[in-house]
Design a protein around this nucleic acid. Sequence first.
DNA 1: TTGATTTAGTAAATCGATTTATTTTGTAGG
DNA 2: CCTACAAAATAAATCGATTTACTAAATCAA
Lengths: 340, 340
Amino acid sequence: MKKKLSIVDIAQSLNVSKTTVSFILNGRAQEKRISPELVERVQKFVEEVGYKPNSLAKSLRTGKSNIIGLMVEDISNPFFASIARLIEDRAYKNGYKIIYCSTDNDTRKTQDLIGMFRDRHVDGYIIAPPEGIEDDVTSLIKDGMPVVMFDRHLPKVDTDFVEIDNLFSTYNATLHLIEQGYKNIAFITFASKQTQMLSRLQGYKDALIAKGLKPVIKEIVFNQDEELIIEPIKAFLEEHKDLDAVFFGTNHVGTCGLKVINSLGIKVPSDLAVISFDDYDVFKLYATPVTAIAQPIVEIADNVITVLLSRLNNSSTHQKPQAIVLKTELRIRNSSKKAE
Amino acid sequence: MKKKLSIVDIAQSLNVSKTTVSFILNGRAQEKRISPELVERVQKFVEEVGYKPNSLAKSLRTGKSNIIGLMVEDISNPFFASIARLIEDRAYKNGYKIIYCSTDNDTRKTQDLIGMFRDRHVDGYIIAPPEGIEDDVTSLIKDGMPVVMFDRHLPKVDTDFVEIDNLFSTYNATLHLIEQGYKNIAFITFASKQTQMLSRLQGYKDALIAKGLKPVIKEIVFNQDEELIIEPIKAFLEEHKDLDAVFFGTNHVGTCGLKVINSLGIKVPSDLAVISFDDYDVFKLYATPVTAIAQPIVEIADNVITVLLSRLNNSSTHQKPQAIVLKTELRIRNSSKKAE
DNA sequence: TTGATTTAGTAAATCGATTTATTTTGTAGG
DNA sequence: CCTACAAAATAAATCGATTTACTAAATCAA
């Protein structure tokens, strides 16, 4: 177990001071007028023995950790997993590592996790915020931490966020259903006060009302246990035999919804047309592929990391927070008009 | 922007030495014979002002970071995302944070990432290792780092690992197909020398040979771009019209395979029976649900974290590395016998 | 009373870097 | 020859904890 080399070891081996080594390694040789020969000698040696500065010590001194904290709702959800994947790639390419965690939309858990991240001195935060976390995020921002929110935002917190045009997305998709001749369209979603969920619901309602139809809404209480999501959906569908279409508000609800539909032997779209928010292999490969609203995942990730990196690089300049809203794509998969 | 309190601030406020504060905060008060009154006073004050030790400084001194490095193949793959989720939960509960990354099965990238983790002084490693990474992992172990491998292992590296009984899983599932009357069964998988892939392939071959049938194997070169996976599968299926069943070696191949099957208008299972490794919503919700081999995800995660934590807690004792092999479950979904 | 031991606590070294302040050396100008 | 100034490098302070080694006061035994 060879022990790690420190900057002192390097300095001693070369008979120079560690200050000099440090300056050279940090590219401040010119500025500090260190002779090119010495620079060369040090760099060559460092390369040779494979010395790498201890980043903990570095962080302690500089106050920068080169770590970004990423808080998603649930890393096992394909939407968040994909985003995380893309963010991870771009972060690593820019010399940042990611510490991530799943909030489960649980305020207390999220508070704890913010505490942990803070404690670890992460340089910046990427958060899909749960409800009730306003104060904690505000306090982060007050302390000068860059925070970028995505998927949703906190109206009371003035910071960058990247999200999609939820209201238009569901409005447009609902209109599509109506134009196909569907009239009894239900919206099944998670009970939530989060901005993206409120907008999705609103878009659906707006479309129905604009066309003089009556909204039918079912809100499911989120639960880790999938059975407890499936159960109420089943009850709802059994109770509303008159529906001719159903709109699922998230990929998770959508997947559970399809399971219910299968178990009840409902035929899609002849018995019941289906649209889901989020596109996802399950929807593409379903017996009759399901129309879905696809989020521009790559763009979301790109924007998130770009905004955050720019904050990290000029932490001095106080630019106004950016609100980035991206478009979605309605992927129409079973466009057969409703049989009259 | 209030600045953080340090242990010195605490010590000064209370008129005691920082040594004393440190001892008390680390539960060494008794051992160090510090009077109960003083202990009480310090604890109360610390609580009051909400002081938290700077974990970077702590790590620098103690050499422990309380961070676990998790390297999966691809965090956006549902198998790895679920495992990561479970590991994350259990790690946090035990006071550890996770830094994760996706290796893409790329040796060079993985080497870089190990370097980064090492640099960050992570306390332990959980790795789904790509090929060719033996030396790097061995060197980690030599340096006394706990390393647990999962999903696959490196035969030349003697360390803990958790995986499933791949050979039996595919053997058993293939036998199931044969018993159903299928005779021309192909195995489509990623080209790979990884232990789990070799075993899966072997299990398939063993079963066919045992029954006097001829193996038909198609190995796909992995690629980030899904089109480049779909393409060769399509070519293969078009070329082998005589097949009556196909076995997909991973969830990813399976999903792509179903897309091909859909695009070719092949009916499952009447034209072609399908089995896939890994169970997954896509397979449950496919037009005719697909028989799949379900991995015990919770058990895998539990075992991984348990083994790692025990190594972390008694790093002194040199227990023999454990090889944990778990059972899978064959979920039979369209068990209709082949029509003769 | 004296020396040993225990009790309760602290000063200083340490982890491995960065950064500020300072010293040494060389050279040009008067 | 002496001063001034730049060039080249370094000593020492710092980040915020832990840990080793030490001290002062109190207790105890002989």
